[in-house]
Design a protein around this nucleic acid. Structure first.
Lengths: 157, 157
DNA sequence: AGTGAAACTCTGGCACC
DNA sequence: GGTGCCAGAGTTTCACT
């Protein structure tokens, strides 16, 4: 699937996708046209899902972020859970939604403007949902690291 | 700080930063040169911290991801905690590290290749650390949503 | 994969509001 | 102050080797 050039390229683009093909060619031992060709192929094939801008911590830190751990009722029809998932996915406040193992079933990272907005979210999406058994909230005091990056190596080839 | 054009632009770039100034000019009512100028200013001022490529879910799903909730010992010297934070920050496996309120002190999202690698990580960084009192791990079964985006509006101006 | 030319995109100066 | 227009610089794309 990927040769070692692709792997280096994917790692580099996950760190900073703003560099030109020529700059990347200096890091990876390849001509700029080969770099450009590979980037285009990786985007077309979907290996690179999308490229996005991340805002400064100064802006993001003005939001109230919360980790919410959900326990669901056990015998839910698949349809209800799908609806619930779709509702969460549609909410702008939900940055991350993961189905997890262990005593909790779902974990959310929610970014709101303030506590009032968080309460509105929790009331309408969580407390009001018949499939949520209970939920527990921790608020984010400080972001120490946020790097979505997955470093690839030859084992990912 | 930001006028309504900047806010629209920041929202658009958080969703997809691969569009040209001309394409963005069709969404936002501005000429392409004005768009390009604003993007450059937003990057120079640091409002846009960086732009990154996100890999496809197919690639990321081959990793074993875990949510780890940490409780620390209470009377830690600030220096020890700083060291601990720096170690976690330096580990590629740590995608997200948050200081939180509530019964836990720190929450991690960790991406490893397999359980063996996760255990190595947990043993060397968590179990071996004198400042960690206990930790609890949930593994990610399924990613339902992952959008780091923070939607801005006139209240962020 | 690399080279070079064509096409496209961004940059910077100037007039305008 | 910021915008739009246009020309030049820089970057990507494409045919060919």
């Amino acid at each position: 699937m990927f040769d070692s050039f692709d792997l280096k390229l994917l790692n580099a683009l996950q760190e900073d996708s703003d560099r030109t093909a020529e700059e990347l060619a200096e890091i990876i031992a390849l001509s700029s046209s080969a770099i450009a060709r590979r980037i285009r192929r990786l985007k077309e094939s979907g290996a690179i899902a999308r490229t996005i801008a991340l805002l400064s911590a100064e802006i993001v830190d003005h939001r109230l972020r919360a980790i919410v751990r959900l326990q669901l009722h056990e015998h839910e029809k698949a349809g209800d859970f799908t609806d619930f998932r779709n509702r969460l996915e549609a909410r702008d406040e939900v940055q991350l939604c993961l189905e997890v193992s262990g005593s909790d079933d779902v974990m959310l990272l929610v970014a709101c403007r303030d506590m009032a907005e968080f309460n509105d979210f929790a009331d309408s999406e969580l407390a009001a949902s018949p499939i949520v058994r209970r939920y527990e909230t921790s608020f984010v005091k400080k972001e120490i690291k946020n790097r979505p990056m997955v470093r690839l190596d030859e084992r990912d080839a």
